[in-house]
Write a protein that binds this DNA or RNA. Structure first.
Lengths: 331, 331
DNA sequence: TTGTAAGCGTTATCAT
DNA sequence: ATGATAACGCTTACAA
């Protein structure tokens, strides 16, 4: 910058003014500076600017793992949306590990990012105080409610209820749930199971507790295993509600191995509407969470916190959902 | 840091020494400093350190899009591996767009990262000069060979040949290829098609050019479309080689719609061995590229360039591959 | 409209 | 073994 000033015959301050679009500059001066910048191939040093301004222009995104399609799609969307305001995204993978999630709230990425979008999977309601941090924070998901940070979530109970009603409307009554977390009060699993129970109760169908199957981590493999265990029980099943698409896809895999047809013998619905759902065999009906809306809201909330234009009180945004009907439930 | 020095009764330099593990410090001094750090909750300001050292401890990763499973898994692995040496990863999505890929080589991320791992999809051999940059760069993939930067690639010709031989060994002769890029000389598609032709020639099977189907972007949707077009031609087909797993999965989807059974009527093999391949219906045989090795090599190469311990000449590493046999070819 | 000077929080140099 | 001081490259008061 010093060199540019020298070449243009101005001071560094004027160079800085030109770079930052300060309006009151004589056109001739501006042009000379810009020529000097081109001539020298000068680029501002973001690190120095960050140090001076106390901001880096980066935000953090803490997710369990990018190899989980939902989080890959979430990251893709957040990076794309953040870029619209010139914000870069630093991704941290927590592996849904408690210690790593706690670390994400105070790690090295702090002081390097202006704020954090955090999707916890191990921390829960009992850890709510950990989210009272002194930097801009937006929480995603359903592990924590009423916490001290902005929160973007969806109405999981209503969405799960709608998913279950979708199955009931197609004549299914022996509906299994895969992915429950027994003992959990809040949290995605608990809320979705509650929605399932609500729908069953409203339809007057008693819930066979054997059909509520646990699966800790929501992967294809755990869905596969849980479904297999369920089939081994020998209980009658005519539908499956996978608490996310991965377990639903794993469950379909297990059903296929047993020679059961989807949807003729067993209808299957998932949750997340990942891209894969549109290409699985059969294609998978799923609850679409509106990723774009989630991402836009989260980035906007965080931006407002960073800029200091947000209200003091923590906000909560409940995003929309819809059901995308595909072959696995008879489309 | 100033405050810590004050509390510990030492100079800032000593605090810095303690933080950076400088060996010649009296144990008592060290302890006082550490206590002061704890007491004040002090954390070093990475931005200031970066400014002073001229390094940020971050590297860039430019990929087409995280919602493509292969690149999500690649990003997952690179982030994990980089973390082992305390390196953070800033991801940039180029959307396989030429302008954005060029920008990735000179964007704002420069000056903010110590180097770049770049997987180009639009730039090719004719752009080789663009890769002669003045910062540490490691290229991934097969778009460019003999360029001025370190390069991690696999032997695509051999791998594609092995994939084709896998099909031939199972008695298939009418083998379609999906995902060709006509007119391309180097580049992933061209190399894999060459491997296919080599295998066919070695087995004495003439190549029916109608079976070499184009698909520009390698998505499930384009694989689906290309397969459908191929079936519309009415040519006989008993196997499909999808040039990546996404097109192979899309092709399986199209086959299914036409009532063709995999593998009985048509065997299918893919490329990349993404996690989904193990759970598709049927499960998909695929060429596994050894992601961990690719990631480790790329990060190590970049690290050595950054540290100045790499040789002057550009290096090229050819990573291993293997074929994972699954149901789609009769496992 | 432009320039001067201070300072962001570190680390490197050089003393001591 | 530790300290004083000068940078790193930029932006922001404030002055002119």
């Amino acid at each position: 910058m010093h060199d540019v000033a020298l070449v243009a015959g101005v001071s560094v301050k004027t160079v800085s003014n030109v770079i930052n679009g300060y309006p009151h500059i004589r056109p001739g001066t501006k042009q000379r500076v810009e020529e000097a910048i081109d001539q020298l191939g000068y680029r501002v040093n973001i690190t120095a600017r960050s140090l001076r301004q106390g901001r880096t222009g980066m935000i953090g995104l803490a997710v369990p793992e990018l190899s989980l399609p939902y989080f890959a799609e979430l990251a893709e969307t957040i990076i794309r949306v953040a870029e619209e305001t010139g914000t870069l995204v630093l991704i941290e993978q927590t592996n849904a590990n408690r210690a790593r999630e706690i670390e994400a709230l105070g790690s090295r990425m702090r002081h390097l990012t202006d704020g954090l979008i955090f999707s916890p999977l191990a921390l829960g309601q009992e850890d709510v105080d950990l989210f009272a941090v002194d930097f801009p924070l937006v929480l995603l998901g359903e592990r924590v409610f009423g916490g001290p940070a902005d929160h973007v979530t969806m109405d999981n109970v209503a969405a799960a209820r709608a998913a279950t009603e979708h199955l009931i409307a197609r004549g299914r009554r022996r509906i299994a749930v895969i992915g429950a977390h027994p003992g959990e009060r809040v949290g995605t699993a608990a809320l979705r199971v509650r929605g399932y129970r609500d729908a069953m109760a409203a339809a007057g169908i008693p819930v066979d507790e054997r059909l509520v199957a646990e699966a800790g981590a929501w992967h294809r493999s755990t869905g596969d295993a849980a479904m297999t265990a369920l089939l081994d029980l020998g209980v009658e099943i005519d539908a499956v509600f996978g608490l996310n698409d991965a377990v639903a896809l794993g469950a379909m895999h297990a059903l296929r191995l047993r020679g059961l047809r989807v949807p003729e013998d067993v209808a299957v619905i998932g949750f997340d509407d990942i891209e894969e759902a549109a290409y699985s065999a059969p294609t998978l009906t799923s609850v679409a969470p509106g990723l774009e809306q989630i991402a836009r809201t989260a980035v906007a909330y965080l931006r407002e916190r960073i800029d200091g234009t947000a209200p003091d009180a923590a906000r909560q945004m409940v995003t929309d959902f819809s059901i995308v009907t595909r072959q696995s439930t008879g489309a």
